[in-house]
């Protein structure tokens, strides 16, 4: 199945509705995160113990990760675009750039929500070392429980045709 670029171009510039994070900001997830990143964690656990309750700001994306299961419908513009690329054979994903800005602290117990805007799609197929593919620009905004923006994020992802391994 070929890639319908004109259909994909219609999605550029569109923003999703507010998508609710699946989990509340929780102490155990923060501990797991510090554990795997090797963060000796002098700040977070101490602050949480003192009741100041601040989560690592770079974890915003963690709270907003979509579920692995059950498989859902592609309802939002960015999901549709990525699905289109997947179906056209560009099934590989590689994050190539991430820019984050932090506006407010994230509190324990908050349930974040986020909006994603499809900010750009490369004009044509790009030839890269990973394979041929398209670069998708996604702009995220994260909100806390009071609908105040806590963080913005610019994320560039390369959707590429995985190279066939010689058999």
């Amino acid at each position: 199945m070929g890639f319908n670029r004109s259909e994909a171009a219609k999605l550029v510039g569109k923003q999703s509705g507010a998508i609710k994070a699946l989990d509340k900001v929780s102490k155990s997830d923060i501990r797991h995160w510090c554990e795997v990143l090797g963060d000796p964690d002098p700040e977070y656990s101490e602050k949480i113990k003192q009741g100041k309750k601040t989560a690592p700001p770079t974890m915003t994306m963690v709270w907003a990760m979509p579920a692995l299961w059950p498989p859902g419908e592609a309802a939002e513009p960015h999901e549709k675009l990525l699905r289109l690329l997947d179906e056209a054979g560009y099934s590989g994903s590689a994050g190539i750039a991430l820019e984050q800005e932090f506006l407010r602290p994230v509190r324990l117990g908050d349930r974040l929500s986020y909006k994603v805007k499809v900010a750009g799609l490369s004009k044509g197929e790009q030839a890269t070392r990973m394979g041929r593919g398209y670069v998708v620009d996604l702009h995220y905004t994260f909100f806390d429980g009071k609908r105040q923006a806590v963080s913005t994020q610019k994320y560039k992802v390369l959707k590429f045709q995985k190279m066939e391994l010689p058999s």
Partner: peptide, 10 residues
């Protein structure tokens, strides 16, 4: 190490 949490259950 952690309290039983809804996010870990999910």
């Amino acid at each position: 190490h952690d309290e039983v949490s809804e996010s870990d259950i999910r």
